[in-house]
Every structure is written in C-alpha cells, then in structure tokens.
C-alpha cells in the first residue's frame, strides 16, 4: 500500500509540475466552467449531440437532413456535403419553406462554426419549437470537420 501511495504521489506531483510549466496557451486551469460549454447547454436543453464519427455516418444516411446555422456567406464559401443553409438570424423568414418541405419527424443534424459558437444550439431549440422532434447537434461544427479533412462543398444548396 505504501508503494502504491508513493507511485500516486510521484504521478500527481509530476502532473502538477508539468502543467504549471506548460505555456499559458496549453496549460489546463484547475477548473473550467463546463456549464458554459456548448455540449452542457445542449444536455440541459435535452438536445442530443453527435461527434465526428457519428456525423460521417449521418452524411451517408439520405433520411437525415443536415442544416448549417452559419450566415449564408459562410455557407457559400464551404459547407458539409448535402447541407442546407438555415442561418439562425433568418429562421423567422425561412422556416415556412422548411416546414413545408420537411416532415416534423425528419431527423435533423445541425452545426455551426465550432465548439465556441451557439448558433446551431439556438437553431435546434427554435426548430423544436416549430415541431421538429428529431434534432441532433454536432458541436464540433465546420471547424472540426474541416480540420479532420472531411469533404467540403462550396456554393449553393443541393
């Protein structure tokens, strides 16, 4: 037992020293406010999230509609394959088209820029308010998809 405690002390001490010596950009603070994290907000709102591998599978599923919550200019520069544009600021004007085109139970996958943007979460909450029941959030968003090297499509909607 004493040996176990010594190993744990060595490990803990090394971890703390190495973390303290890291450059500020990569140093981990003792605690983060994780409640402000986009995934925590989605969890609190009862909106399921999916991650990169889940998105890869979703893009192969023709039943799932992918919605890009970023401004239309960003969508035109590049978006996930098959995605439709529905900027959070234009939901009021354009939701009529989507309600007309999509059944309420259509599975929707939403994304925006990345982990620091909340547009897709706000859109998810709004869409649920309009009766869409199967809404999933991709918190990694366009930035993670691009960093992963996933296919990017530029130009208008399919």
């Amino acid at each position: 037992m004493a040996s176990c405690a010594i190993l744990l002390l060595i490990a803990g001490g090394t971890g703390l020293v190495v973390n303290a010596l890291r450059p500020a950009s990569s140093r981990l603070p003792w605690a983060n406010d994780w409640s402000r994290h986009i995934e925590a907000k989605a969890f609190q709102a009862g909106i399921p999230v999916t991650f990169l591998m889940g998105v890869r599978e979703s893009l192969l599923d023709e039943d799932i509609v992918v919605l890009d919550a970023r401004p239309y200019e960003k969508f035109m520069e590049g978006h996930l394959p098959g995605a439709w544009s529905l900027p959070i600021g234009e939901v009021g004007e354009r939701i009529g088209d989507y309600v007309h085109l999509l059944a309420a139970e259509t599975p929707l996958l939403l994304y925006c820029d990345g982990a620091d943007c909340s547009d897709s979460l706000e859109l998810a909450i709004e869409l649920r308010g309009y009766g869409f029941s199967d809404v999933t959030l991709y918190p990694g968003g366009y930035e993670e998809w691009q960093a992963y090297g996933g296919d990017i499509v530029s130009g208008g909607m399919p």
Binding site: L8, G15, L28, N32
Partner: peptide, 14 residues
C-alpha cells in the same frame, strides 16, 4: 465539473 480538469491533469501521469 470541479474534478474534470484535475482528472485530466493527473490521470495521464498515473
């Protein structure tokens, strides 16, 4: 939440 970063600092070294 309070334990997440501490775990992330210590576990790899354990």
């Amino acid at each position: 939440d309070i334990l997440i970063n501490i775990m992330a600092i210590l576990l790899p070294w354990m």
